[in-house]
Every structure is written in C-alpha cells, then in structure tokens.
Design a protein around this nucleic acid. Structure first.
Length: 516
RNA sequence: GAGCCGUUAGCUCAGUCGGUUAGAGCAUCUGCCUUUUAAGCAGAGGGUCCUGGGUUCGAUUCCCAGACGGCUCACCA
C-alpha cells in the first residue's frame, strides 16, 4: 500500500468516529503509569493478582498489536514505559470491541481494567473498557529497527522520539543536567537571571552575530553571542553571584560540534579568581556525571573518560611550544612565532600577533590530544580581551579553558575590571577588525561606563551545555542532544506538498476542522 | 566553502556489470485464529528507484548539473 492508501485507510476510520461522536475526546484520565504498575506489582504472583484484581487505568500510544480474532494484545507506551493490555470480545462492551478492532499502530488509546499475569508471566491489563483518544493518520516507523533515516530523525524529531526510546533517554538526561546545574549553583548562593538576547552590540565572545530588526523602534539589532557583558553589569549592580542558562546565537558553520543556536551556562562570582572556579567546575561536572552517567568514569565514543579530580593542568604556551619543538620565548615573538607556525603548516589568523599565533599553534597541535579532562591556562592577553592580566606576567591572562575528548567544554577567567584597560583592549580589537579580523570584539562604551562605577573583582565562566550533554550522554554529534537542530529547508517536500492535497481528495465527506 | 559517501515501497534494507513484470522483512488489506509478545497460517495490494538534463534502440543503473543529508577538512574562544 502506498502512503496515501495507508493514510486513506486510517482517515476512513476517523470519518466513522466523527460520524458517531467526538473523534478527539479529552475526558479520559489515566490513573496509572506503566512504570508505576510494573514496579508496584513486580513481585506479585499470578495467583495473588487473580484474587486481588488490582484496577488499572492507563493511556498512551499503541506500539504493538497482536490480534487473535476474538481477542488481541495491545502494547501501550505512555511515554515513561510500556504495558500490554489484553482485549477480549466477551469482556468488553460492543462499542469498545469495535474500537479495539479498528486500532492502528500509533493511535493514542485509553484502557481500563484489572491487572493479571499471562501464561508467559507478563503483567497485563485485562481490559473492561477501551477508548480511542486520538487517531494516528500515518503509519509509524517500523517497530524493530525504529527510525534510522538521520534526516527524518532531525526534521521530524517527534518520530524519532516516539520510535527510539534511547533518544527520549538522552533528552531526559539533558533535562537532568540542566536541573542539576541550577541546583548546584543555587545551593551556592548564585542568583539565576535573564539578560537580553536582542542586543545593539553583540559582545562577550569572538563570533559573528545574526542580525535582526525591531520595527516599532526602527532599530537594527543583533542576537546575542554571549550574555557575558550583561552579567558583569549585574556584578556592578550588587548581585555578587549570578548565572544564566540560555541560548546563544553565532552565525557560523555547522558541524558535529557546532549548532548556530546553542545553550550556554555562564556564571560570575565576585571576590573570586579563576583559580577558585577550576575546583568548582570539577565538583559540578562530577556531580552531574554521577547523577546522569552513573559515575565519574564515563564512556564517550571509543574513550573512557575519568572525571575524578583533580584534572590535569597545562599551560597553553608551554604545551604549544613543546608540541612545536621550540622555546616558549619563540612563541612570544611575532616573527619567530610566525616561522614556527609556517613550519608546522598552521594557518595564521588575520591580524594575529604572537599571542594569536601561539593560540593557533596550540589549537592545531595540542587540542586534538586533550582527551582526558584538562585545564589549559596561560592564555595570551591578545586573545582574551575581557580577561584580567596575570599579575606576574601581563602577556598572559588569568584564564583557563577546559578540554575533554578534544573538545572545548568551558572557558573561565578572572574578569578585567579596570575600565581604562578594558577600553584600550576594545580599541585594540577595533584595530584588528580594520586588519581583517571580522570576529574582533566591538567597542561597547556602555559596558566600559559600567566598569567605571567599579565592578568588584570577580571570576566568571561559561560552560557549553550541549557539549557537556554530549559527553555525559555519549553522543557523537551535537545534533543528538539538540531536539531541533538547524536544517536547510527541504525543498523536495515543499514542492510535492504544493502539488497535491494529501488524502483530502479521497475524503469528500470530511468536514473542515473548526479552529476557533 | 572543499572533498568523499548516501538518497530504491509508510519504515528497515537488498538489487540492477544498461534490458522487457525492481525484491525481502515489518506495516497495510482479505480470510482463519480467545494468553500473544519481532504472535502464527493462507492470499493480495503497494514504487516519481531524490530532481532535471545528456548518452543510448532502451537509464533506477552510465555521464553532467542540482536538491537534501552524513562524515572529514576549512571556518568556529
């Protein structure tokens, strides 16, 4: 049967339902969840159930149907688990039996009855009532292999979720990660805040923004690339520990590790340095791993990652020099650094000085090797326009990045709160922009003004939630932990949808759906 | 943006060294079946082989272009 035929068959059943009553009722209230019933009656013997006849009222999607003429088994998935129901003609009202006979895979159904165990000892609802609650008009993906077409999995995530239980688990884990972060930070006195996504100057990171427009104000705006500068304004305002979990938007390429919109945690703590944030990060990530991955050792692809603190610490310039076979001093000199980069075939970013070149060398030679959790410190000041210079060596800043499985996972530093230095850094970034670095940080005078009102010394950190979820859920692509990743429009589907009206032509009796 | 790979029934996949009716399992339809669980048995239907051009007597298959996806690289704090 073609797709149209499959749908037409189901639509015909829907038409019959409409003819005799409400096709989409909302008066059935399930009293039990499949998982509850399984755990509550786990140890109940068949004979015990036989005498007690515990009532059960469940609702969910039909994911299996085995028919025997005058009886059938139906497996119902209520989102949290599955339980099967046994439907017999001689135990059901006639209309419920008719409903049962017309059930299709994918339908939403409500079943009421009593629990028993079958010959094969499976806990089962012996149905005394069956209600169709919502008709499924399309054939669902195959029961055994599930949905494998990656494109459909992303475009129609609901199909992925309803046919691949492991996918639901990933997103449940992701929710627990986010909830765990909130709990962890709230317990430590951090205040959760929300700052603008629509901004006039998108700052706080090196990235190209999306542009948009506010009609009433006639104002061009950008989507935020980071909440950083607003969160630090809040430090000036007197909130000494703040955090935000929210979406950032960066107008850049898509890969297994990049989605144009992604979720970031940023938190700021006054009276702290980047040294304080490293153990805090270790604690937080360990707590999350123990909660969602069952321990501090997590499997990620072919790697086994041991998150037990303390994590290794290396210096960026030191590691880059040793990987490139040169001295650190070579990487502090623009000309010699350039030669080292060229010798190793490392592309030199536009407008880069020695610090930028050293960072590029690090990223190409060292970053891919950082599989176990590693804090990288000693970032050049040149590539860190918002971070506080190290007291002992102002060529670098008090900053770290966390790498796990060769992926950047977190970025934290002691905040630059000297307004005059910050203005100079912005000006230097502007100069880089002139020289072709289109991701150089823009000038933000309003932010500098905020610093002039005295921001307490502080440290702040950003953690990529998607990448953290990838690590803790063992997901190879960021699209596996983002429910609806950005996709190109599917022009094939658009073209064919315009050419036909699916199913409707063959259903002349069907009245249009009232919408108001 | 570049390279490689993929796109065949609603789903999961075979297949065609260019050949006449393109297959399987699940799903669907018909019949039988009151404890099955990837239920079973018998039968049937279901295809824009991603799209468009080209080569050819003949293209789902070969060539070119395009669409969409995946991976790698580039980009990307």
């Amino acid at each position: 049967m073609s797709d149209d035929d499959l749908t037409a068959t189901r639509r015909a059943k829907l038409r019959e339902l409409r003819a005799v009553g409400r096709a989409y009722p909302n008066d059935f209230r399930p009293a039990h969840r499949a998982s509850q019933l399984h755990s509550a009656f786990e140890s109940a013997e068949a004979s015990a159930l036989e005498s007690a006849r515990p009532p059960a009222r469940i609702a969910g999607r039909v994911v299996g149907r085995r028919s025997f003429g005058q009886a059938m088994f139906v497996t119902v998935d209520d989102g949290g688990g599955r339980i099967q129901a046994y439907l017999r003609r001689d135990q059901l009202p006639p209309d419920a039996w008719e409903t049962s006979r017309s059930l299709d895979l994918g339908d939403q159904v409500g079943v009421e009855g009593t629990l028993f165990r079958t010959k094969t000892n499976e806990l089962t609802v012996a149905a005394s009532e069956v209600r169709l609650l919502a008709k499924c008009l399309h054939a669902p993906p195959e029961k055994w292999h599930g949905l494998a077409d990656v494109e459909i999995r992303y475009r129609q995530r609901y199909l992925d979720l309803l046919s691949n239980p492991a996918v639901r688990d990933v997103f449940r884990k992701r929710a627990r990660i986010v909830a765990g972060i909130r709990r962890f930070l709230s317990e430590r006195g951090f205040l959760e805040v929300e700052t603008p996504i629509l901004q006039q100057i998108a700052g706080g990171a090196a990235a190209r923004p999306f542009r948009t427009h506010h009609n009433a104000l006639g104002l061009d705006l950008q989507m935020r690339i980071a909440p950083e500068l607003f969160l630090k304004r809040l430090l000036v305002g007197g909130f000494d520990r703040v955090f935000e979990i929210g979406r950032n938007f960066r107008n850049e390429g898509i890969s297994t590790q990049h989605n144009p919109e992604f979720t970031m945690l940023e938190f700021y703590q006054a009276w702290a340095t980047y040294e304080d944030l490293m153990p805090l990060t270790e604690q937080m990530v360990c707590a999350l791993a123990e909660e969602v991955a069952g321990g501090r050792v997590v499997r990620c692809g072919e790697h086994e990652i041991d998150l037990t603190p303390p994590w290794r610490r290396i210096s960026l310039v030191g590691a880059a020099a040793s990987a490139a076979g040169c001295n650190e001093s070579d990487l502090r000199d623009p000309e010699r650094a350039r030669q080292v980069a060229e010798r190793h075939g490392v592309a030199i970013p536009p407008a880069a000085g020695a610090g930028g070149i050293a960072t590029a060398i690090f990223e190409h030679l060292v970053e891919p090797t950082l599989v176990q959790p590693t804090f990288v410190t000693g970032f050049p000041t040149e590539v860190s326009p918002l971070a506080r210079p190290s007291d002992s060596d102002p060529w670098v800043v008090d900053r770290f990045e966390l790498y796990v499985v060769a992926r950047e996972m977190a970025n934290g530093f002691s905040e630059l709160n000297d307004p005059d230095d910050q203005r100079e850094r912005f000006l230097s970034q502007l100069a880089n922009r002139e020289r072709g670095d289109d991701e150089a940080h823009p000038m933000d005078e309003d932010y500098v003004t905020a610093l002039e009102y005295a921001m307490p010394p502080a440290a702040g950190e950003g953690i990529g939630i998607d990448r953290l979820a990838m690590l803790l859920c063992d997901a190879p692509s960021i699209r596996d932990v983002i429910l609806f990743p950005l996709m190109r429009p599917d022009r094939r589907a658009a073209a064919s949808d315009e050419g036909e009206t699916p199913g409707e032509g063959a259903a002349p009796g069907r009245a249009p759906e009232p919408r108001a």
